[in-house]
């Protein structure tokens, strides 16, 4: 295996570790911090951050994998998180039109939180469309507040963890060129 192959394997292992850790943190820690029956959602946030950090192709693939993890944790339709996460990551990557180091940390963070909120809304709408009742209620507002506030706290650590998970060279390859899109 050459140096590139080793680097790629290292990236995959790190990404796997990040995904597993995110699922554990969500399940064991964040789910317990429920305010008015709503808790922060690290998985959706990490999915959209992946879109911004890795670009549309790798970002949406990583988001899909996170969606699988999220779907295994809940007793709601299987595949729904995969669908919404991958679309949200893909969309978020398109809004990140300039490289992260030029757009500014705050702008990138706010983009990710906004995308996470839209993704949550999208999840509720798709779930309602396929026959899950009780999604588009007052509870949704509380959920959006919890996801938004939690997102503002977790977004920068999430972006840094994702950047750490792939080597610098790959990161620059995934970053979006001026006026274009990544990958």
């Amino acid at each position: 295996m050459g140096a590139t192959g080793l680097m790629r394997t290292k990236n995959y292992l790190r990404l796997l570790a990040v995904a597993v850790l995110a699922v554990l943190v969500q399940q064991a820690v964040l789910n317990q911090i429920a305010v008015m029956n709503a808790h922060p959602d690290l998985l959706v946030l990490l999915a959209v951050c992946a879109g911004v950090v890795f670009g549309p192709v790798y970002g949406s693939m990583f988001a899909f994998a996170l969606g699988l993890g999220a779907d295994l944790l809940v007793n709601l339709p299987f595949g729904l998180s995969c669908l919404t996460f991958s679309i949200s990551a893909f969309t978020a990557s398109y809004f990140q039109k300039i490289p992260m180091h030029k757009s500014g940390v705050v702008n990138t963070g706010l983009l990710c939180v906004s995308a996470a909120l839209l993704s949550t809304l999208f999840y509720a709408m798709i779930a309602t469309l396929i026959g899950q009742h009780g999604m588009l209620t007052y509870q949704l507002l509380k959920v959006l507040v919890a996801v938004g506030v939690g997102g503002l706290i977790l977004v920068w650590p999430s972006i840094h963890v994702l950047k750490w998970s792939i080597d610098n060279e790959s990161l620059h390859r995934y970053e979006v060129p001026q006026g274009g899109s990544a990958v």
């Binding site: 549309p56 192709v57 949406s60 693939m61 899909f64 969606g67 779907d71 339709p77 299987f78 595949g79 729904l80 995969c82 669908l83 991958s86 679309i87 893909f90 396929i130």
Partner: peptide, 13 residues
Amino acid sequence: TLVMLILVSLTLL
């Protein structure tokens, strides 16, 4: 890539 991921998700659903 996006279309493939959407199709897989819809298949799972």
